[in-house]
């Protein structure tokens, strides 16, 4: 029987509990839908470009021994005269710096832009139209709903934050086989860092979305917080020379975590700003955790059954 000829009929038995976890259903359906936006697809596609460019850069560097030595000298801070002098530690430092520039700077920008594109409407629009009542009238917990919405943002951020660095790492290891073992631990670290950023960005975004009930306000608040904390942190750090003020900035906290994870050491010549390594990673972890906890609680609080 053709589908349009079917008539609504009662079911022989009532449905049972969902086969998949409810958050996964929401993440799948809503996530598939947000990717239909050409703007979102464009940003996600563009986010792959730096990885390809870095990969090409490494390819061309390996074609020319002097370029490769120059890169190793710059990152290893040692006087290398031939490739025989390049140790595993040198390759580790080269890879750490490349990953830091790519993941800790370039990809973070894409994450900054993509987070509100994916997440600003997710809860705000549901609250505005009271569609959250349609969800909550189903057998799912508020945490399933919030987790599903976070997963929509988080999985895509994970992809754009971890994908290009992993690609570059793989290209480098393939072209310079001796660099594989010293850099092996960067693979999981890259994914872990992308996960930290994805979860914290997603949690804060759903919190802001739930707070404002307006996608525009949520986007504005997101960028405002990001840039204001960044600027304030930079001014305070410069004027007081106290590196602890880096903790004010959302972005710096993420960079501090990455640099600590990569065991990054400051270079004489850098093409990007480097965070301080004078304090440990834990204050930054604490700042991100508190912000994420706030976002989670805010979104959850909007969804929980109201007490009369």
């Amino acid at each position: 029987m053709a589908i349009h000829e079917r008539v609504y009929q009662r079911m022989s038995a009532p449905p049972q509990a969902p086969a998949s976890r409810p958050w996964a259903i929401i993440a799948r359906v809503v996530g598939r839908h947000v990717m239909r936006s050409w703007k979102t697809r464009l940003v996600m596609f563009a986010s792959l470009a730096p990885g390809l460019m870095f990969g090409l850069g490494i390819y061309f560097a390996t074609r020319n021994e002097e370029s490769l030595l120059s890169m190793a000298r710059q990152f290893a801070l040692t006087n290398i005269v031939s490739l025989e002098d390049v140790t595993a530690e040198v390759w580790r430092r080269v890879a750490a710096n490349v990953l830091y520039v790519l993941e800790g700077h370039v990809q973070l920008w894409f994450g900054l832009i993509l987070t509100p594109m994916l997440g600003a409407t997710l809860i705000a629009e549901d609250l505005r139209t009271q569609a959250h009542e349609v969800y909550m009238a189903r057998p799912l917990r508020p945490r399933d709903y919030v987790l599903g919405k976070m997963a929509v943002i988080g999985t895509r951020l994970l992809f754009i934050l971890a994908g290009p660095p992993l690609l570059v790492l793989a290209i480098g290891n393939a072209l310079i086989p001796s660099s594989f073992l010293p850099c092996l631990h960067f693979y999981p670290l890259t994914v872990v860092f992308a996960g930290i950023v994805a979860v914290s960005n997603a949690a804060v975004m759903v919190g802001v979305s739930a707070l404002t009930r307006s996608a525009r306000y949520a986007t504005a608040i997101w960028f405002l917080v990001y840039f204001v904390t960044w600027v304030v942190s930079a001014i305070l750090t410069e004027t007081t020379s106290n590196r602890w003020f880096e903790l004010v900035s959302w972005r710096s906290n993420q960079q501090i975590i990455l640099s600590e994870m990569l065991a990054l050491e400051p270079l004489h010549e850098t093409i990007v700003s480097m965070p301080s390594t004078t304090h440990t990673v834990w204050p930054s972890v604490l700042v991100l955790s508190l912000a994420s906890w706030w976002g989670w609680r805010m979104a959850l609080g909007r969804m929980k059954p109201r007490h009369g």
């Binding site: 009271q130 569609a131 349609v134």
Partner: peptide
Amino acid sequence: PESDAHLGDL
């Protein structure tokens, strides 16, 4: 529900 309650623009 009484409100619009459409699930985004799904």
